[in-house]
């Protein structure tokens, strides 16, 4: 799914990633933790094909990042720091635009919103009027709409209420069971430590610890 070797990525002239080696397989749920400014978000953005790889080799979903970042971008599901929503459009309009632009059937929008517990009375409300947590839920619904095989979630629990956090956990587990890979950067360790199958610690733009803690999620059709 993800193969990074000696990856260096720059933000301006700053090496946010200073040589990262990481291999992630299908059905893994990877928790990326580390102090602020460690390079967690940059790692996710590189995996999403949004940042140029300065040196090293990177392959995501079978695409070489130095050759075809566009192909990677088209197939991942990324929840970033910002929610990438248009303030002046309604919740439904935002997701319908996103679905149409991503060439996903518009019928998948309503179930996704339902899945994230976004009440139908909010569907026709402009995104600028939502609370931070509601915004995150809509952005997450955007990821769900795509049914990606690689989920890249940056602080997926941030700003969510108890029920929202439970929904995220369920989403992550279900995605892995369906054969997808989930990489999430998080500070909410008490919640994510048990959720993850593997713990990766990032500091100083490198990986300082990498440990598998349990077997990857069994697939729906897995015998085991």
């Amino acid at each position: 799914m993800v193969r990074l070797r000696g990856v260096v990525a720059l933000l301006g002239r700053f090496p946010a990633l200073a040589g990262v080696d990481l291999e992630i397989d299908a059905r893994e749920i990877v928790l990326v933790q580390g102090p602020n400014g460690a390079g967690k978000s940059t790692l996710l953005r590189v995996c999403a094909g949004l940042l140029r790889v300065e040196s090293g080799t990177a392959e995501v979903l079978g695409h070489d990042l130095s050759v075809d970042r566009a192909a990677v971008r088209r197939s991942v599901g990324l929840l970033g720091h910002d929610t990438a929503l248009y303030d002046d459009l309604t919740v439904l309009e935002n997701l319908q635009f996103w679905a149409a632009a991503s060439r996903v059937a518009p019928e998948s929008v309503l179930p996704a919103l339902d899945r994230l517990g976004v009440a139908s009375r909010l569907h026709a409300v402009a995104v600028s009027r939502l609370s931070a947590g509601q915004r995150r839920r809509v952005a997450l619904a955007g990821v769900v709409v795509r049914r990606p095989t690689l989920w890249l979630l940056d602080e997926p629990h941030a700003g969510l209420d108890q029920r929202g956090r439970d929904l995220v956990d369920q989403l992550v587990v279900d995605a892995a069971r369906a054969g997808a890979t989930v990489v999430m950067a998080s500070h909410e360790l008490d919640r994510t430590v048990d959720l993850a199958t593997r713990h990766v610690t990032v500091a100083g733009g490198t990986i300082t610890a990498d440990r598998q803690v349990r077997a990857a999620e069994p697939g729906d059709h897995d015998a085991s």
Binding site: A48, L50, A70, R73, R74, V76, L78, G80, H81, D82, T83, A84, L85, Y86, D87, D88, W98, A101, S102, R103, G142
Partner: peptide
């Protein structure tokens, strides 16, 4: 500005239009 606010430009890239 519409595309810059809240990183919506990134969404255009990710959508693959």
């Amino acid at each position: 500005a519409v595309e810059i606010n809240d990183g919506a430009r990134r969404a255009l890239l990710l959508a693959g239009i």
